[in-house]
Structures are given as structure tokens and as C-alpha cells.
Simulated assay, not measured.
Amino acid sequence: MIRQATTADAAAIAAIYNHYVLNTTVTFEEQTVTTEQMAERIEQVQNDALPWLVLERSGDLLGYAYATKWRVRSAYRFSVESTVYVKDAVTTKGIGSQLYQQLLAELKALGLHLVIGGITLPNDKSVALHEKFGFEKCGHFHQVGFKFEQWRDVGYWQKLL
């Protein structure tokens, strides 16, 4: 079941996310996120009238996807950045695809025009997910982040809705 997240989901979402914070470079956060901080993030996305979705199966939250404003200037109001995370144990089960399909449909229904995905490189799985949904690479920043004692590149993919 895919549904809108609530702040009651914050602990499960933080648990999924913190795995990536501590063990990967897919996020440039270096400190784990508390349940309270995650609840605030969920509220901010929803206050901006954007979707934050979770995929739940038998009471277990397996992944989430959401969109945030791309920039604060009003001319950017039809562009968003997308995010999707899946519980580490189930990353090859199509959960990310299910979430992305629903997220993109909801963003289109909201009248948004452009979705942007930022990907720490290399990350073949994330690139494949984005390209599966029609995203095209539009930019590449070299050595823009520093995590785990290494400089990291970030590529940007975009999709017109």
C-alpha cells in the first residue's frame, strides 16, 4: 500500500534513511537524523503542499519518496527535486519503482512541470531508476561533496512532466 506519510512514520523513515547516512554516499548528510527531525521534514514537505509517500506492506514501512521545492524564488515554483529511499534489505524488489511511479503521477496532477533528481556518482542503480522513468542527465558537478574521506561527484537528471 502506498499512502501519504504522517509524522507517526518518522521513526521508521529515519531508520531507513540513517542506514544510508552511516553506510553510503547516496546522501551527503554525515550525522544521523532523529525521529523529531524527520517529523519536521515531513511536516515541511506537506506544508509546501507536496507529497511525501510511504510504501507499507503488512505494517512494515519499506520505502518512501517525496518532493521538495527546487529553489525558493517564485519563478522556480513549478520545479521540484525528488527523493526516494528503500529499506536496505529490499532494494531489489521494485519498491523504488512503485514509489517513483506514484510520486511522478501526483506531481503531474499538482501541475508541476519539472522534476530534478540529484545522484551521487557512481550509482548505477539510481541512474537506472531515473532513466527508467524518462529522466535525462542534464548536469554534473565534479568533487562537490566530501564524505568518507573522498571527494564525490553529483549528477543531475531531469524529467519534464
Score class of each variant (00 low, 15 high):
Met1Asp: 05
Gln4Ile: 04
Ala5Met: 04
Thr6Val: 07
Asp9Leu: 02
Asp9Gly: 03
Ala10Val: 05
Ala11Arg: 08
Ala11Pro: 00
Tyr17Val: 06
Asn18Arg: 07
His19Lys: 01
Leu22Asp: 11
Leu22Gly: 10
Thr24Gly: 08
Glu30Phe: 12
Gln31Asp: 10
Val33Asp: 09
Thr35Pro: 02
Ala39Arg: 00
Arg41Tyr: 14
Ile42His: 03
Glu43Tyr: 14
Val45Pro: 05
Asp48Ser: 00
Leu53Asn: 03
Leu55Gln: 10
Glu56Trp: 04
Arg57Val: 13
Arg57Ala: 13
Asp60Ala: 15
Asp60Glu: 15
Leu62Thr: 02
Ala65Ser: 07
Tyr66Val: 12
Thr68Arg: 10
Thr68Val: 15
Arg71Asp: 11
Val72Glu: 14
Arg73His: 10
Ala75Tyr: 11
Glu81Trp: 00
Val86Ile: 13
Ala89Trp: 14
Thr91Tyr: 12
Lys93Trp: 13
Lys93Glu: 11
Gly96His: 04
Gln98Trp: 12
Gln101Met: 14
Gln102Met: 14
Ala105Leu: 05
Ala105Arg: 10
Leu107Ile: 04
Leu107Gly: 01
Leu107His: 02
Ala109Asn: 10
Gly111Pro: 11
Leu112Trp: 04
His113Gly: 01
Leu114Arg: 08
Ile116Lys: 07
Ile116His: 06
Thr120Tyr: 01
Ser126Arg: 09
Ala128Ile: 09
His130Asn: 04
Phe133Pro: 08
Lys137Arg: 14
Gly139Glu: 06
Gly139Lys: 01
His140Gly: 08
Gln143Trp: 13
Gln150Trp: 08
Val154Tyr: 07
Gly155Trp: 05
Trp157Val: 02
Gln158Cys: 11
Gln158Asn: 02
Gln158Lys: 02
Leu161Ala: 05
